[in-house]
Design a binder for these strands. Structure first.
Lengths: 313, 313
DNA sequence: CTGTTAGCGCTTTCAT
DNA sequence: ATGAAAGCGCTAACAG
């Protein structure tokens, strides 16, 4: 029965007629293989557990998971997403123990030595960490938030801006991201002789309008605003237009994410593109390598941020 | 060993000293229970599989999953989300076979008779369907999109509007939703003697501005715009303000979702609140009931949409 | 070509 | 109080 059902037909072991009888019986009885027994016997599953860093669940993030999931599914795996990172720190470990996945994609900071060794002994064969920078001996997807800021600074310097007003997001979900991006921005800006001033800002139309009035209404020559994402940037643009301040002549504006809103806005917003669908597909394929080949080397897959010039710089 | 590790200490079966020895050995060897063996032996897991309808992955949706996941985690389950609905129709069945979850939350239309019986025989004890309307014999979360439209129509009728311009979303992810909401809107509107006109609209600033210019620039008395979500509604508001058309005096605007953008916009957007955190918590608890009690009755949990009056109606 | 069996890791019953 | 063993569903090795 096992041979027939699994198609192990090495050198005609099974008579076609027997095969038919087995198949017929299976169909008649509505036979379905038992997942637990399969996993116990084979010592592996086809499940890949995915946990995301504490990113806001906006378009860039959902794009990433959807692409990764899609490619994994195509490769025959069953990708499952474990939400709830920070709120239940033990959650991933528990999930790992309970599904014994064969692969794991998770933020670097939860992948401690202890966690990894317990996961490995639990059957996990492929681990990919989502990190800020490469980690020795571990496959990583490197998403360097600082680099995003650096690219923005380069773009602004190239366009001749001399002064950057960096909006630091007050939204707790964006705070970390925001700080890192501005850190990168500042480092390059200073090297290029630009000055940077950081101001806290929320995703609030009125507050942003007030902020614009206070800080940018009469801008110094060569001032640009850097926002941590397009939503913030678009609020700035809106406020500037309401005040009839010329963009990009008087003030430049640059966002991050290259969201569809940014591409459709008028004037089209300059932004930093981070989305790299093929990057997540490559992650899936790297994971596939690791599960199939025993000594697959650790890989590093980098997100390459690029400035997408719109009409606001 | 099993008795010690599982704390089965009925009437002092185990000598404290033996218990200690077992515990020490387990610690020393880094013992971790094997998920597959556990599942095989006990015939159940603590996994709950979640699949969402083809909703756009915006704030209302992510809110829902996060709340549901959180409560399930609190109850001791391991919630896992299977993304990819339409793209891989077989995906959920495969996922179900592979993890043999004890609970399942999924859109009603994938829960066919065949699927359910195969899932049940695979160990699934609790199923909750996300549907438009209750299904006999099945526990359901009822999210009636038509009802959302009805509530909007009631609100507008109550405010004295006589004519509604309904914006039907062209975005494929929103098309279905949009159609249903407008259907509900229309039914109540007609009953109340309001007229409804449906116009396709995309989430595009310029196109929306053009649409407003063409259709609402010189509105008939008592005209209101109904948008399928707040993002669309806010574009309308922006365009109306640019044209100095008085809101809500000349034209009313109502959105859906009661998003944070809507609450923070100026003027504050009237919207339909659908978010019901406690609804998803109730879903989790209902599921818990079903897994623990053998003959738990099917429950129906309804989302109650409510108009949240802002300054645009 | 087919039938039988051990054993994956675990719990629980039964004997001692 | 402890030890031994059966069996959950499956596959692969082995004997026939």
């Amino acid at each position: 029965v096992s041979y027939v059902l699994n198609g192990v037909d090495d050198r005609h072991r099974i008579t076609p007629e027997t095969r038919e009888r087995v198949l017929a019986a299976a169909a008649r009885l509505g036979y379905e293989p038992n997942a637990a027994a399969l996993a116990l016997r084979s010592g592996r599953t086809e499940i890949v557990l995915i946990q995301l860093p504490e990113w806001p669940l906006g378009p860039p993030t959902t794009d990433a998971v959807l692409t990764l999931s899609d490619e994994l599914e195509l490769l025959g795996y069953t990708p499952l997403v474990h939400l709830l990172g920070a709120s239940h720190p033990e959650g991933l470990a528990r999930a790992c123990r309970r599904v014994s996945p064969i692969g794991l994609v998770a933020p670097g900071d939860v992948l401690t030595e202890a966690f990894l060794s317990s996961a490995r002994s639990g059957g996990v064969r492929a681990v990919i960490a989502i990190t800020e920078r490469p980690v020795a001996g571990l496959s990583t997807v490197v998403i360097d938030q600082r680099r995003i800021g650096r690219v923005a600074a380069q773009h602004l310097a190239g366009r001749g801006y001399r002064h950057i007003l960096a909006l630091e997001a007050t939204d707790p979900g964006l705070a970390q991201l925001s700080r890192e991006r501005i850190e990168g921005l500042t480092s390059v800006a200073h090297k290029s002789g630009l000055t940077v001033e950081t101001v806290p800002a929320g995703l609030d139309r009125e507050a942003m309008d007030e902020l614009v009035g206070r800080r940018i209404a009469r801008p110094a020559r060569g001032t640009a605003v850097f926002a941590v994402n397009d939503a913030h940037a678009l609020l700035v643009v809106e406020s500037l237009r309401r005040r009839s301040i010329a963009i990009p002549r008087s003030v430049g504006v640059i966002g991050c994410d290259d969201s569809s809103e940014a591409r459709q806005s008028c004037p089209r917003l300059t932004s930093i593109r981070l989305r790299a669908p093929d990057m997540w597909r490559r992650v899936a394929r790297a994971l596939h390598q690791m599960t199939s080949v025993d000594s697959a080397p650790a890989v590093t897959i980098r997100a390459i941020p690029r400035a997408v010039a719109g009409e606001t710089t």
